[in-house]
Design a protein around this nucleic acid. Structure first.
Length: 879
RNA sequence: GGGCGGUUAGCUCAGCUGGAAGAGCACUUCGUUUACACCGAAGGGGUCGGCGGUUCGAACCCGUCACCGCCCACCA
């Protein structure tokens, strides 16, 4: 006997182990079957499962389980990402707690520390994915720094280099002075801050007392100024072009040039040009052949290119000093407070990034981007919802070279070696590089490897094929590439999706996936972005502990709409925990009534209307859920399942069959028990992708099964006499609901004897009622039902003790609703009249009775409906 | 500056092709009737952001405005 309540905690671990041991997650176990593959977005190896992962993984697991049950050979490829910057930061922080530092340890020892960290805490997130119920093929788990994946990275780098797409360039990059590394454009987060615009006078050479005033938000960079630019058409400055300004503090003479970059509307119309510290100025400098003066060290302090007073100062200290000195010289014209956005590091959002002149490795992505664009334009890969394709297009159309080198230690070290003479050897291994170096006569074969590592996303971009064994021509690669659906969030469309598209098309000559499903982000219950600093993080593991993984999963699936962000909190999960309890008890009811799975049960051959009905309803639910999942409408699938199980199966079917099960007719009872067991089994299957644990447990508890539910067959039910059975039971439901309304309205005590006299009902209705008399009396709690023709048609008589009440029940019941509707319409009509009257002062209109207005409205609506019906008929005849 | 999304019940949100506004939570009343009080029954509550338009008919289509959120670019 099942317990009264379901306790997830007791079964989740056991069920999960059973699945894993059974090999159900393993790909390739169904050789003849159609392959189906999902690549998990690899989480950071040192991360913890947050609610966003939970959503992402749940949706993938729903698809994996659904397709597995549909007979496909499913590979859900798991793994983790080495996450260069994040991981290095985490380990550095832990070192700091032990009074150690990365630099103090040196590269080799530091890397050993990171690997140790990875071994110790790296398993956490995959264990947490298991707790969610993720049915990944764990035997194939990969890590982006695995040997195989690293080999793929090296091969890709070398090939792109040989194709001339990877090159080294000295130009401005976004520089993180704390980590002392370059980052890509995408890793910059512009944050609006309060700052100042400083107006600074630059004296004109040879014209004492004459100045040109520029405005800047970063005054310290003036130490690297090489010109002042004005717009060629700006009359204010026309006569200054060609002259020189004397740069204060440095006392360098810098030219005043004309360049269209200068905007007369902004600032003073004259702009300082600092090519080494501003992206736009860099371009201006290039156009005018200006020198580059770099004033910063890697750590953000000023170097020796500036006057001695500022050397060694941090950039912000230097800013203060520069302002103070300018003020002392009387060259600070004014200070204007402004709000402007300032580039920050994406991870901590606390470090201001600097445009910085360094030599970095770049990947020219334009040729790759063109193919990635074309593939989506041609529909070879589709975005769901489609509007995300535009985001993808816009980015790829304006793409810039990708800075792929990072001055970090944790990551794929760039496969480039240098000899003492500065010769460059690009090779997949050091041995190859060495061999190549030895090939050059007279060269010292002592090689030094490029110290930089690759951007983490470089290896992520290869994930769809590197995990399948590329560059080896593996069986898996042939079988599962291109993969089917990528499930991810919009914030990594650029970082990841676009780059996988580019790399996949380049190296595999095919798109990495046919469909990209973009889900929304998860916010807290107040609609705030979750963050540790705000302390509003909803921990999925806490929710799992409290309500069970199934409840959390179901909540996430139900909230996975396509439009907006979802808000998740304990209340919603609790509601779905209640759903699992409901399911549990429905199955418990089946068990108490000895409803056992009958082998060979044929749903097409049941006799009782109520059984035909639930079969039809099950078929409809199965159809709806299947269709919704095929179209990736998770919320519709989940909600169809929810409504079917709770409103149809529990609220009506189980109630309707109680009298049948307890009645005298053993044939009917037997058929009903068999049908109930059958429907229960279908429900367990249909719910399994959403709520795998509870359904698997109930599956095992309710019969001797040949196989686990996870590998059972997805329902495909032919609906028997659907319309007929549905009409019958819908009628019954309407009758019972109507009677209940009336009972409540009349305040009939529960124990009262109550008779219902139906009048004027037609023959069909009588037949229906006769057939379902037992159910009706039980559900409506009537003592008797009879018919009488003496009462006006369309009425019903309630006899409660001495009270006889005649109520306009109508042919099909629903008194209360009808009346409410009428009242509402009257109200609306009166309001309408008042409104019109107020507007026009129309006396005629006012004189009309509200009832007439309602009638008129009804008449008009009737006409409209008739027209619509005719239209529909015409359309269906056409089809 | 460019683009995208949102605005529906007190709250969180559904509403696919235009056909009498839905769910869950919360609220009110009733209820220990052979699953379930993590339950059942019956209710209350909505000018579907505003204004125009198309249509016999609009939450849905078109135009426009307002507010909220996000992305990209710029930032002298």
């Amino acid at each position: 006997m099942l317990d009264k309540n379901f306790s997830p905690r007791d079964i989740e671990g056991r069920i999960y182990a059973q699945w894993e041991d059974s090999g159900a997650f393993r790909a390739g176990s169904r050789p003849g079957a159609e392959p189906y593959c999902i690549m998990i977005p690899p989480p950071n190896v040192t991360g913890r499962l947050h609610i966003g992962h939970a959503l992402n993984n749940t949706l993938q697991d729903i698809l994996a389980r659904f397709e597995r049950m549909r007979g496909k050979d499913v590979l859900w490829q798991p793994g983790t990402d080495h996450a260069g910057i994040s991981t290095q930061l985490v380990v550095e922080r832990s070192l700091a707690e032990r009074q150690q530092s990365r630099v103090g340890l040196g590269r080799e020892l530091f890397l050993r520390e990171v690997w140790k960290w990875k071994e110790e805490s790296g398993g956490a997130i995959v264990q947490q994915q298991r707790r969610l119920g993720a049915s990944c093929d764990w035997s194939r788990e990969r890590f982006t720094l695995d040997e195989g994946l690293s080999r793929a990275v090296a091969k890709v780098f070398v090939q792109l280099y040989r194709e001339g797409l990877i090159y080294k360039d000295k130009r401005l990059v976004n520089w993180d002075p704390r980590l002392e590394t370059a980052v890509s454009d995408l890793e910059v987060e512009n944050i609006e801050v309060k700052g100042h615009l400083w107006y600074i006078r630059y004296p004109i050479e040879g014209e004492a007392g004459r100045f040109i005033t520029i405005a800047t938000t970063r005054p310290e960079t003036m130490l690297g100024d090489v010109a002042v630019a004005v717009h060629p058409d700006d009359d204010r400055y026309r006569n200054l072009v060609g002259k020189y300004a004397l740069l204060p503090l440095s006392n360098r003479r810098i030219p005043i040039i004309a360049d269209a970059y200068s905007d007369p509307e902004k600032g003073t119309g004259a702009v300082k040009i600092t090519p080494a510290h501003d992206f736009n100025d860099f371009e201006v400098g290039r156009r005018h052949d200006l020198p580059l003066i770099n004033i910063l060290q890697r750590d953000g302090r000023l170097n020796d290119a500036v006057p001695a007073a500022y050397q060694g100062l941090d950039r912000f200290a230097a800013r203060k000093a520069v302002i103070a000195d300018l003020e002392a010289l009387g060259l600070l014209e004014r200070i204007q407070p402004i709000a402007h956005s300032v580039p920050h590091d994406e991870k901590t959002k606390t470090v201001v990034l600097e445009p910085y002149l360094t030599e970095q490795w770049y990947l020219d992505v334009r040729p790759l981007a063109e193919r990635a664009l074309a593939a989506v334009e041609a529909g070879r890969t589709q975005f769901v919802p489609t509007q995300w394709a535009n985001v993808y297009f816009n980015w790829l159309r304006n793409i810039q070279p990708w800075c792929i080198s990072r001055q970090l230690w944790w990551g794929h070290q760039i496969p480039v070696w240098y000899d003492a003479d500065g010769n460059v050897f690009v090779a997949e291994t050091e041995a190859d590089a060495l061999a190549e170096a030895r090939g050059k006569p007279g060269h010292d074969p002592v090689l030094a490897r490029d110290p930089d590592v690759l951007d983490t996303w470089f290896s992520s971009a290869l994930w769809p094929f590197s995990t399948l064994g590329w560059p080896e021509a593996t069986r898996e690669l042939a079988r599962y590439y291109p993969t089917d659906v990528l499930v991810t969030s919009f914030d990594i469309i650029f970082f990841w999706v676009a780059r996988m598209m580019m790399m996949g098309l380049h190296f595999m000559k095919d798109v990495p996936f046919h469909t990209v499903f973009i889900h929304t982000r998860v916010l807290d219950e107040k609609g705030q972005k979750m963050s540790k600093t705000k302390g509003n993080v909803v921990d999925p593991l806490v929710l799992i502990d409290e309500f069970g993984a199934d409840a959390l999963r179901f909540t996430l699936a139900l909230a996975a709409g396509q439009g907006r962000d979802m808000r998740i909190g304990p209340a919603r999960v609790e509601a779905n925990r209640n759903f699992s309890t409901k399911l549990w008890n429905a199955v418990r009811f089946c068990e108490m009534n000895r409803c056992q799975t009958v082998p060979g049960f044929d749903p097409a051959r049941v006799e009782l209307i109520v059984n035909k009905w639930i079969i039809a309803e099950t078929a409809a639910a199965g159809r709806d859920i299947t269709r919704a999942l095929e179209e990736l409408r998770f919320n519709e699938a989940a909600s169809a399942a929810y409504q079917f199980v709770w409103s149809r199966f529990c609220d009506w079917y189980l109630e309707l069959i109680k009298p049948v099960l307890g009645g005298g007719d053993e044939t009917h009872a037997a058929e009903t028990r068999a049908t109930t067991a059958w429907a229960r089994d279908q429900i367990l299957k249909l719910l399994h992708p959403f709520m795998p644990f509870i359904t698997e447990e109930l599956w095992a508890q309710t019969a001797e099964r040949d196989a686990l539910l996870i590998i059972s067959e997805w329902p495909k039910i032919a609906p028997p006499a659907e319309q007929e059975a549905r009409a019958e039971i819908d009628w019954l439901i309407a009758l019972v609901s109507g009677v209940r309304s009336v009972r409540n309205e009349m305040n009939v005590p529960a124990a009262a004897r109550i008779e219902l006299v139906l009048t004027g009902t037609d023959a069909t209705a009588r037949d229906r009622l006769e057939r379902n008399r037992t159910s009706t009396t039980t559900l409506a709690r009537l003592s008797s039902i009879s018919f009488a023709d003496s009462v006006p048609r369309g009425s019903a008589q309630f006899v409660v003790g001495d009270i006889v009440a005649a109520l306009p029940l109508g042919d099909v019941i629903d008194l209360a609703k009808e009346r409410a509707r009428l009242e509402k319409e009257l109200g609306h009509a009166q309001a309408e009249i008042a409104k019109i009257d107020a507007k026009l002062g129309n006396a005629d209109f006012m004189a009309r009775a509200p009832e007439d207005v309602v009638d008129e409205q009804k008449e008009r609506r009737g006409e409209a409906e008739a027209l619509a019906r005719r239209l529909h008929e015409a359309v269906s005849r056409l089809a």
